[in-house]
Design a protein around this nucleic acid. Structure first.
Lengths: 257, 257
DNA sequence: CAGTGGTCTAGACCACCAC
DNA sequence: TGGTGGTCTAGACCACTGC
C-alpha cells in the first residue's frame, strides 16, 4: 500500500503517480493498468477516487478504456506536420501524410468518401461562391498503424471539381492539387488557421478518443495564382499526437536595407 | 424542475443544457450561475452530478469558479495571432500583441521579468550553445482587459543579449528584435512548432484557468541571416481564446513553369 | 455565521466482456 | 457468472467568501 498525503487533492496525486509509472514503463504501452478496485486498495482510497484519477489520464490521451476489459496504456506516436514543405513530395506521387507517417516507421492508411452538397453559408464564404451552390466534399480519415489520427473534410466548388476530375474517391498521382494544377488552377497561396478545443462527441468517436480531450483544428484555404480559393479543408486531429510546424523568412529586412 | 432522461449520462446532458443557456445569454457573461444546490433541485439530481457537469464547462473555458463566491460565466474574446505579419508593426514602436488586442477593442497589458540562468540541455540545443552557458530569459505575461491570456518565455544567448542591450525589462521601441537588428543580428528566419495539451498546474495558475483545460504551445525559433538562432521563445496560451494564422505561397510553381 | 464550491466515502445499479 | 469500468446518490467534512 502506497500512502498519499493531501496538499493536492488525492485524485490529482494519484494521477501523477500513475502518469509517472507509465513514463517509467512500469505500466507498458498496450498493457492494461491494474483494475480500479486493485488500485483503490493499493492507494487506500475508494474506487471512485481512482476512477477520477484515471479520468485525468484519459483526457491526457495516456490511456484508453475498453468497457468490460480494462484500461490500457496507449502507444503515443507524435507526428510532425510540416505545413510549408508538405506538398513537395507530390511530384513523386506520394501524399504528404504518407511521408510524415512513414518517417516514423509506421504504416499509413486512409479512407475517402466523396459527396456533393449545397454549400453552407460558412463554406460559401470561404470558397467565395453562392451559398447553396453545389460543392464537392471529400471526407477523409487517416490512420497510422491502423489507429485513426486525423479527419479532414475538403470542399471544392462543384464546377471546378468537374473540370479537374476530382469527383471520384481516387484522384490519381499527386492527389487533387495535381489535378487542379493540370487545369491551370494550381493552389499557390495557402492560409492556415489553427485552433485548439475539446473534441465533440462525433469527433471523439471517429478518432477513437475521449470527448473533452484536446484536438487541433486546422482550416486550410488554398488559392490559385489569382488569389481565388480552389479548396478549403478542415483538419481535426488528436491534440496529443500531432505537432504542426511552420517556417518563413522576413523579406522586409532586405527591402529596408 | 426540468426533467432529464438518460441515453447520454445525465451530467453530460446537464452540461449541454447549461452550455446552451450561456450561448443564449440566459446566463450572461460575468454573471454567476445559480448555485449548485439550486441547480441540483432544478434538474432533480444530486449536487455531485451538477458539480461534474460544471466541471465540463470549466474544462471548456466557459465558466470560472471563485471559491466561496460562485461560478461565473466567462467573457471569451478570441484573439487571432497572425504569425507572418505580426512583426510589421514594430517600426511604429508597437508590439505585435498590442496591435492584436487593440484590434478587438480591448486593453493590452504585459509584465516582464528578466533573469540569467545556465542553459538547460533543451534550450542549449535549440540555441546551438553549450549546455550550462549563460542565457538571458525574459519571462513575459500578457493581458487583455486585465485578464492574463498568454505567457511567453524568451531565451537569448548571454553574450548576444549583452551586445544588443536586451538585459533589462524595457528593451526600447520595437522590442528586442529591433535591438538585435541594430547589432547586425536581425531575426530573418522563423520556425514555429505548435502543439496542444492540457495545462500544467503552474500554467493554469498563471493564466487563471483550469488544469486540464487545453492550451496552445508555440515554440518560436528566430534565426539571423546566417541561420544562427538568436532567440527561442515558448508561448503558452489558453486554447479557447486564441487562433493562430499562417500564410505562405508555393514558389515552386514558378520554378517548374 | 451562512453560503459557496471541492473532495471523499460507501453502497448501489448498470453495460459490457470473457469464460 | 464474475470481472471490468460508468454512473448516481446521500451524507459528510473542508476551505474560502462575505456579512
Amino acid at each position: 500500500m502506497t500512502t498519499i498525503e493531501p496538499p493536492q487533492p488525492r485524485f490529482a496525486q494519484i494521477a501523477g503517480v500513475l502518469r509517472d509509472r507509465i513514463a517509467r514503463e512500469i505500466y507498458k504501452g498496450g498493457e492494461p493498468l491494474p483494475s480500479e478496485p486493485e488500485l483503490a486498495k493499493e492507494f487506500g482510497v475508494s474506487r471512485i477516487t481512482i476512477n477520477r484519477a484515471v479520468g485525468i489520464l484519459r483526457t491526457d490521451g495516456l490511456v484508453r478504456v475498453v468497457r468490460g476489459r480494462g484500461t490500457f496504456v496507449r502507444a503515443i506516436p507524435v507526428v510532425t506536420r510540416r505545413a510549408n514543405s508538405r506538398f513537395v513530395a507530390r511530384d513523386q506521387g506520394l501524399g504528404a501524410f504518407d511521408v510524415e507517417v512513414r518517417d516514423l516507421g509506421m504504416k499509413p492508411g486512409s479512407e475517402v468518401v466523396v459527396d456533393r452538397v449545397p454549400a453552407s453559408d460558412r463554406a460559401a464564404e470561404l470558397l467565395q461562391v453562392e451559398p447553396g451552390s453545389e460543392v464537392v466534399v471529400r471526407r477523409r480519415r487517416f490512420f497510422a498503424n491502423d489507429e485513426p489520427v486525423q479527419v479532414a473534410d475538403s470542399y471544392i466548388p462543384g464546377p471546378l471539381a468537374e473540370e479537374a476530375g476530382v469527383t471520384e474517391a481516387d484522384t490519381g498521382p499527386g492527389g487533387s492539387y495535381s489535378r487542379l494544377a493540370e487545369v491551370g488552377r494550381a493552389p499557390v497561396f495557402f492560409s492556415e488557421t489553427v485552433s485548439c478545443r475539446g473534441a465533440s462527441a462525433s469527433e471523439a468517436k471517429l478518432l477513437e478518443m475521449e470527448p473533452q480531450q484536446p484536438v487541433l483544428e486546422v482550416l486550410l484555404i488554398a488559392s490559385d495564382r489569382d488569389h481565388i480559393p480552389v479548396s478549403v479543408t478542415q483538419h481535426v486531429m488528436a491534440g496529443h499526437q500531432w505537432k504542426l510546424n511552420y517556417e518563413w523568412s522576413d523579406d522586409s529586412e532586405r527591402v529596408d536595407a
